[in-house]
């Protein structure tokens, strides 16, 4: 076994320091190391996007990032989108538009959608479809995911975003 390296990552607003094997993927670290099992692993070739998180605000597939590469970054997972009992506009839109069925790809789709909303890229349905190329969903046929993302864009304009993740707890340090 290789020597462990120390890392410090701010996950959903809470800074954690840890020692990880160099080969540990960010996706595995979030799930096994931090118990944040909302981030799902759906493939091993970086195709499906279920593990998408925001790394310094940008969507990345956390199965394609080593935990050590995330040292010094801000990571947001699905657990950090909204405080318990509240819903981020993206979460609200996916519920309203039935944008999920089994829910397995959903965390990754929500994180990508959050970024699309932040980038104001939700007004054109065809563009949304193109933007989903890094996502595989087997249940919805994408139809209601596309509509949910468009709806999230409307909601984000109508109301300010839900409280930021920094108030969240639950990440062991």
């Amino acid at each position: 076994m290789e020597a462990r390296l120390s890392i410090q990552i701010t996950v959903n607003g809470k800074t954690v320091s840890d020692h990880v094997e160099p080969r540990t993927l960010l996706a595995h670290y979030l799930r096994d190391g931090l118990g944040l099992t909302g981030t799902h692993i759906g493939c091993d070739t970086s195709q499906c996007g279920a593990c998408t998180v925001l790394l310094d605000g940008e969507p990345v597939k956390s199965c394609t990032v080593l935990a050590v590469q995330a040292d010094g970054t801000q990571v947001m997972t699905v657990e950090g989108l909204a405080a318990p009992g509240t819903a981020h506009p993206v979460q609200q839109a996916f519920q309203e538009m039935h944008g999920l069925q089994c829910g397995f790809c959903t965390p990754g789709v929500l994180m990508l959608s959050t970024w699309l909303v932040q980038q104001h890229q939700t007004s054109d349905l065809r563009h949304i479809r193109e933007s989903l190329d890094g996502i595989i969903c087997r249940c919805t046929g994408y139809e209601n995911i596309v509509k949910a993302i468009a709806r999230a864009g409307e909601l984000a304009v109508d109301e300010p975003a839900a409280p930021a993740a920094s108030q969240r707890e639950g990440v062991p340090s």
């Binding site: 909204a82 959903t106 929500l110």
Partner: peptide, 18 residues
């Protein structure tokens, strides 16, 4: 609206690998 969605959109479902 789906009752199951509340946990599924917040990463609080419990799949077997969890």
């Amino acid at each position: 609206l789906r009752k199951e969605d509340v946990r599924l959109v917040s990463g609080r479902g419990q799949y077997t690998d969890d």
